[in-house]
Amino acid sequence: MKKKTSFSTKGQKADIGNITIYRMLANRYADKVGPFIFLDHIVPKLSDGVKNSGTGAHPHRGIATLTYVLDGEVEHFDSRGNHQRVHSGGIQWMKAGNGILHDETLNADSQSVNNLMHAFQFWINLPSNIKSEDPEYLAIQSSEVPQQKFAEDKGWLKVIVGAYEDLNSRIPNYSEQFLYHIHLEAGTDFTISLGDKIEVAAFLPSRKTVLNDLEFQAGEFIEFDRTAGEITLQNNEDQATDLLLFGGEEYTEPIAAEGPFVMNSSSGIAEAYRDFYAGKYGTLKHQKGKV
């Protein structure tokens, strides 16, 4: 049985400097999909050669941030001393845990002649017992991302988070969760089966695609119902298309969110701010260009 569409929507513009961003989640219909509570799409743009200044040092607590770089290079710094560059096709994951400061900058990839910048940032809500743990950081380059090629050269699936068949992401799972990048060549299709009570959404970053017999446009965010069933992706166009499919089991604990903090109560938010202003998240020392 095919899963039914609950809703579809397009994001709200949330630009930072000269980078064009569309906020896809939270949206007017949903504030979460499984453990995922935030999704920004940094739309494709040719670099003008001027280095971006980054987001600026800022705190997080209670979540994990995940940046998936399709094109470009993200440079990361945090108050735990982590400093790394992730190149096109790579992932950076940071468990904020009980509090951290970080900064990240997206620019053209220094290892590629492609001057395109294109990325996604997700926030993954952590269970209450993990929110109190120390921060962690992972940099996963493109060659380390698990990938399965489809038969007959139909395309491929990359496992960014979670598992697919015998493939497993290096990113820790604190609940059932998944994030797949699916690439379909022209005139091909792919079907995936999902279990009962699993929240799932799709995002189309570049081209229109048919999902369970309904056509959706580039830039659309689509959520499906929570009953067990299949999602069939069809690319009826004459060019390849890409799709992000993500979700997991429902996050059932209370959610209190304010600014860069996501906790389980208003008192948890207040404590997050107190600790930040008390300097408990450490300090950030930028040494850009030295990795």
Rank of each mutant, 00 (worst) to 15 (best):
E104M: 08
V200D: 08
I130M: 11
I198D: 07
P205E: 12
G89V: 06
H102I: 07
D189P: 00
L157N: 05
K197L: 06
L194G: 01
E144K: 11
L106M: 13
R170H: 05
L116K: 15
A163G: 04
A151I: 10
F150K: 13
V145L: 07
K208L: 00
F120L: 12
W123S: 00
A139S: 15
D109Q: 11
M94D: 01
Q148W: 15
A139H: 07
H102L: 07
Y164S: 11
F203S: 01
H87Q: 09
E185R: 15
A108W: 11
A96L: 04
G155W: 03
H118L: 01
F120R: 09
I124M: 04
I198Q: 05
L167D: 10
L138N: 03
Y137A: 01
K95A: 04
N82W: 04
L204G: 07
I124Q: 02
D134A: 14
F150H: 13
G187M: 03
S169G: 05
G162Y: 02
T105E: 08
E199Y: 01
A202Q: 11
S193V: 05
P172Q: 03
H118D: 11
Q148D: 12
S88H: 08
A201W: 06
H83W: 07
E133F: 12
A202P: 05
K95I: 02
T188F: 02
D134Y: 14
Q148I: 13
G99M: 06
K197T: 06
T209R: 14
Q111G: 09
F178Q: 01
L106G: 00
V86Y: 07
L167V: 03
I192P: 00
Y164C: 04
S193Y: 05
K158L: 10
S128A: 15
V210M: 11
I171T: 06
F122L: 04
S142A: 14
L116N: 15
Q177D: 03
A119T: 08
L157E: 09
S142H: 11
L184H: 12
V200F: 08
W93G: 00
S193R: 12
N173D: 14
I192F: 05
E104S: 09
E199S: 07
S175I: 03
M94R: 06
H181L: 13
N115C: 11
D196A: 10
S175W: 05
E152M: 08
L204A: 06
A201C: 04
A139T: 10
P205K: 15
L138S: 04
V210R: 15
P135L: 00
E133Y: 12
A151K: 15
Y174R: 10
Q141I: 11
E165S: 11
I171K: 02
D103F: 08
T188Y: 01
T188Q: 13
P205G: 08
K154E: 14
T105C: 12
D196Y: 01
P135I: 00
D196H: 12
D189M: 04
Q148L: 13
G97R: 03
S206M: 14
Y174V: 08
D189L: 03
E144V: 09
E176N: 10
V159A: 07
Q84C: 05
E136W: 00
N168L: 09
S142C: 05
R207D: 12
A108L: 11
N125Q: 04
Y137E: 03
N115G: 14
A119M: 10
N173A: 15
K197M: 09
T188C: 10
Q92W: 00
L194P: 01
S128G: 09
E165A: 10
N125D: 03
W156Q: 14
